[in-house]
Simulated scan of single mutants.
Amino acid sequence: MNVIFENLLSLEPQQVVMWIIGGILIYLAIKKDMEPTLLLPIGFGTILVNLPSSGAVTQVIDGVKEIGIIDVLFDAGISNELFPLLLFIGIGAMIDFTPLLTNPKMLFFGAAAQFGIFFTFSLAALVGFEMKDAASIAIIGAADGPTSIFVANYFNSNYIGAIVVAAYSYMALVPIIQPFVIIKLTTRKERLIRMEARREDVSKTAKILFPILVTIIAGIMAPKSVALIGFLMFGNLIRECGVLNSLSETAQNVLANLITIFLGITISTKMQAELFLTKETLMILCLGLIAFAFDTVGGVLFAKIINLFSKKKINPMVGAAGISAFPMSARVVHKMGLQEDPHNFLLMHAVGANVAGQIGSVIAGGFIINLVSKIL
Results as ranks from 00 to 15, higher is better:
residue 5 F to E: 15
residue 7 N to F: 09
residue 7 N to S: 13
residue 9 L to T: 11
residue 9 L to F: 13
residue 12 E to R: 15
residue 17 V to P: 01
residue 18 M to T: 13
residue 28 L to A: 13
residue 38 L to N: 04
residue 38 L to T: 10
residue 39 L to N: 11
residue 42 I to C: 09
residue 47 I to A: 13
residue 53 S to T: 06
residue 54 S to V: 09
residue 65 K to T: 15
residue 68 G to R: 07
residue 69 I to S: 06
residue 71 D to F: 07
residue 71 D to Y: 07
residue 71 D to E: 11
residue 73 L to Q: 04
residue 73 L to H: 03
residue 76 A to G: 01
residue 78 I to H: 03
residue 82 L to D: 00
residue 82 L to C: 00
residue 83 F to Y: 15
residue 85 L to S: 07
residue 85 L to I: 06
residue 87 L to Q: 02
residue 89 I to P: 00
residue 93 A to E: 03
residue 93 A to M: 03
residue 93 A to Q: 03
residue 94 M to A: 08
residue 100 L to N: 05
residue 106 M to Y: 05
residue 108 F to Y: 14
residue 109 F to A: 11
residue 112 A to Q: 08
residue 116 G to I: 09
residue 121 F to T: 04
residue 122 S to C: 05
residue 124 A to F: 09
residue 127 V to L: 09
residue 145 G to T: 14
residue 148 S to R: 01
residue 151 V to Q: 02
residue 165 V to Y: 05
residue 166 A to F: 05
residue 167 A to P: 02
residue 169 S to Q: 00
residue 171 M to E: 05
residue 176 I to C: 00
residue 177 I to M: 08
residue 179 P to V: 06
residue 180 F to P: 00
residue 180 F to S: 04
residue 183 I to L: 07
residue 188 R to V: 11
residue 191 R to P: 08
residue 192 L to V: 01
residue 194 R to N: 12
residue 196 E to N: 12
residue 200 E to W: 00
residue 201 D to V: 10
residue 203 S to R: 03
residue 215 T to R: 01
residue 215 T to P: 01
residue 216 I to T: 02
residue 218 A to V: 12
residue 219 G to N: 04
residue 221 M to N: 00
residue 223 P to H: 03
residue 225 S to M: 03
residue 229 I to M: 11
residue 231 F to N: 02
residue 236 N to F: 06
residue 239 R to E: 07
residue 241 C to Q: 06
residue 245 N to S: 13
residue 245 N to L: 10
residue 245 N to K: 14
residue 247 L to V: 14
residue 252 Q to S: 11
residue 252 Q to K: 15
residue 263 L to A: 10
residue 266 T to G: 06
residue 267 I to A: 05
residue 269 T to W: 01
residue 273 A to I: 05
residue 277 L to C: 09
residue 285 L to I: 15
residue 286 C to Q: 03
residue 289 L to V: 03
residue 290 I to D: 01
residue 292 F to P: 00
residue 293 A to N: 01
residue 295 D to C: 15
residue 298 G to Y: 09
residue 307 N to Q: 10
residue 307 N to H: 10
residue 307 N to C: 10
residue 314 I to L: 15
residue 315 N to C: 12
residue 320 A to W: 11
residue 323 I to F: 07
residue 325 A to D: 15
residue 326 F to L: 15
residue 329 S to L: 12
residue 332 V to T: 15
residue 337 G to A: 12
residue 338 L to D: 04
residue 340 E to N: 12
residue 342 P to G: 05
residue 347 L to H: 11
residue 349 H to R: 10
residue 355 V to H: 08
residue 356 A to I: 10
residue 359 I to Q: 02
residue 361 S to Y: 02
residue 364 A to H: 04
residue 369 I to H: 01
residue 369 I to W: 01
residue 370 N to L: 02
residue 372 V to G: 02
residue 373 S to E: 13
residue 375 I to E: 04
